[in-house]
Design a protein around this nucleic acid. Structure first.
Lengths: 157, 157
DNA sequence: GCATACGGTTTAATATTGCAACCACACAAG
DNA sequence: CTTGTGTGGTTGCAATATTAAACCGTATGC
């Protein structure tokens, strides 16, 4: 009767949600990608209960999204920073942001826009491209069964 | 003490999560984008309790992600289909999929790959571009305060 | 019509969330 | 080294959400 796990699911969307698809994890990851590192920073920024923050940080560590590093200010405390696997979540944050920018009923309540650091200009919308460079919408794609792993090009067993 | 709402948050990521950031909604949306339309189809595909499915469908309707249409087979039942606002979630599903493809520990358990319908070739990774066409990573972006709404270019009030 | 499938609602058990109090350790001051 | 405070949690309890399973009205199918 516990919350059903999606870990063994064959759908990659479900598998991702199993890792960080709960109510708080993505916001913690967002904060981490904004440079927040300390327990107290997350707690103050998100306003969630400390016990929940503690368990979320623990599972994000277990799952390789975050890692702990000795505190940057020389104190004996530790800090939480994104691993490469955690940084890989960035496009998902961008996609969420752009969805709100496009479809939210009250876009005036959005505080920030994402710009490229060099020019300060807004970024473009994420684009899904085919291998020959066409822009694809939802209707232009299908799912195919994943081909078996390529068998190392020797004798085909 | 109820689950804290993110609806009024100024962060666009949080606002999106408030709409479909719970455990099941994105999977319902995924199913809908795969062409599933009927209550029973969702329930069989996802294996979630029917009461939960009912409440999720209801809130997704309220929030303009889904709409009901008369059943396509002529029966008196209704079907659930994505609105344009719901179709807009597609890039988020793609981003989640691609994250799993890149970082999952057991990529062999992923059943499908996304291909472009015309050529049948795998799609490329979502790319974030600057206005002058450079590919941007997480470190190449910043957030700026959203500029005030442009005041209709007449007398500036 | 009569049985069955569909699309839910209701009920009760269990799990998760949220809040607040508590606690241990680090660090700073005296 | 002793006291005081901030940080980073843990613990316990109340409220809420999830789950499974029973139930039910309306459509279909025969």
């Amino acid at each position: 009767m516990k919350r059903t796990s999606l870990a063994g699911d064959s759908c990659p969307v479900a598998r991702a949600l199993d890792v960080f698809g709960d109510w708080w994890s993505l916001l913690i990851i967002r904060d981490a990608s904004l440079g927040r590192r300390r327990f107290g920073e997350f707690q103050a920024s998100l306003g969630l209960a400390k016990n929940i923050l503690a368990t979320r940080l623990r599972t994000l560590l277990e799952r390789g999204i975050l890692k702990t590093v000795p505190a940057s200010d020389g104190s004996a405390y530790q800090e939480y920073v994104l691993t490469p696997k955690g940084h890989g979540i960035f496009p998902i944050l961008v996609a969420l942001r752009q969805w709100t920018e496009e479809f939210d009923e009250h876009p005036d309540e959005i505080a920030t826009i994402m710009v490229d650091r060099d020019r300060g200009k807004p970024v473009k919308k994420l684009a899904l491209l085919s291998q020959d460079g066409r822009v694809l919408g939802a209707g232009d794609t299908t799912l195919k069964p994943r081909p078996a792993r390529k068998p190392a090009r020797r004798a085909s067993a």
